[in-house]
Nucleic acid binder design. Structure first.
Lengths: 224, 224
DNA sequence: TCAAGAACTGACCAAACGGTCAAGATTTAG
DNA sequence: CTAAATCTTGACCGTTTGGTCAGTTCTTGA
């Protein structure tokens, strides 16, 4: 009941938990759940292993905490797809947003990918309920846009799958992308080229009618 | 030097190695390299663990053998993209082929994905040399098609990435796809819908001019 | 100042793992 | 038939792993 001790800048607990979560995300991304060792996570966080168990109890609990953090990130992006927006803008923003996170938080994407790849033992329930409902809502929007003639009637759920696949590919398969492009590290230009390619593929592929040329600072006028 | 003993239908060695490889692919797909145990692979192959080490020596050697098998599969599909074909036909075939293998050999795709996801410790060299060269060759073809006005000038390498991403998504993220679609198992119709969506996205997205309606049995004249 | 709670940690443990091996069973070539 | 080669396998081993714990140090509210 009593509020936890909290120095400014976060209590000791909050600070150490955050530190451990960052280290854990990196190690889980590199090695997967089974391959990750609590010793490796502790070493990366520069804390004794026992300290890590003091805060999170078990490796699985720590893993779930990492996943929970990632989901918050993932859910945000889909908000770009709203019925009151122009499809071109919405899809462009969504793709940009996903590509942004693929670049800035590749480890988050990798941990998530690894979880699904191996049967989603922790996230299975979430996928079948929460995620499914959200995708269903976005499908309604996409179908409406198609009915209004703003885009071709593409299967909305499969369209979402392709968006996920293409954008997350640059985080999850980064090693392959780098190897094929012959890069030591992916550059800003690489991400721009990738984003442009995906945006073109989706907008032209769905024959999205680009709205009238708007000026910057789009005070999106609701369609009257 | 002396040829190995080989009963008809395969020598004991060939038969057992094949049996172990099948089991290993499944277990590696489910659990990843580190998560897979030689005991689990042996149990699935219905052989004693020691027998497995008799044939493959180490877990890593077995894993490499599994990967080698998978690469043979993967390389075949790219052959669809040849300069002497119509882009629409070639791309459609490539997508269909990849989707076919995603459905028929999901474990192969998952093992491959897991390998790349965790930094390609075994395939790193292959990606940077063999795969890179092959993609480069296909990029030449795609650029030629663009120059000939048969399709828009999309960045060919990134286009290949999107093709890989979209098609392999249905194997690697099958659990998520099933959850969102609300299916216990993906049906023939699901794969058809997915393939159709991807094909439309790519062909319209690249503005591929569907060639003049050709008759079946296209006696494609080899460029002399 | 000073208890009381929170945080810290080296040492330890049982279980699980990859891999080994010696000894026996089976197959094959001549 | 027979001896060499191949195949089979239970038992075993050193190492690594996730997790525990008792004892200590640090932080904080009154």
């Amino acid at each position: 009941m009593s509020k936890r001790a909290q120095g400014r800048g976060g209590s000791i607990r909050a600070r150490n938990e955050a530190r451990i979560l960052v280290a854990a995300e990196a190690v889980f991304a590199e090695a997967g759940f089974q391959g990750a060792t609590t010793a490796a996570i502790a070493a990366r966080a520069k804390l004794p292993k026992a300290n890590l168990h003091y805060y999170f109890g078990t490796k699985q609990a720590l893993y779930r905490a990492v996943l929970a953090n990632i989901l918050d990130l993932w859910l945000g992006a889909l908000d770009a797809i709203r019925a009151d927006r122009q499809p071109a803008e919405a899809l462009r923003d969504y793709i940009s947003s996903k590509m942004h996170w693929s670049r800035q938080r590749p480890n988050a994407s990798k941990v998530f990918a690894n979880e699904i790849l191996h049967g989603a033992p922790q996230l299975g329930g979430y996928l079948a309920t929460d995620l499914r409902r959200r995708v269903g809502q976005k499908a309604v929007v996409l179908r409406r846009w198609a009915r209004q003639g703003l885009m071709d009637p593409v299967d909305p759920v499969h369209l979402v799958f392709t968006l996920w696949a293409m954008t997350q590919h640059y985080a999850d398969f980064e090693m392959q992308v780098r190897a094929v492009l012959g890069r030591q590290r992916l550059t800003e230009a690489d991400y721009t080229a990738a984003t442009d390619t995906i945006v073109k593929l989706v907008l032209d592929g769905c024959k999205v009618t680009s709205g009238p040329p708007r000026k910057a600072g789009q005070g999106l006028r609701r369609s009257p």
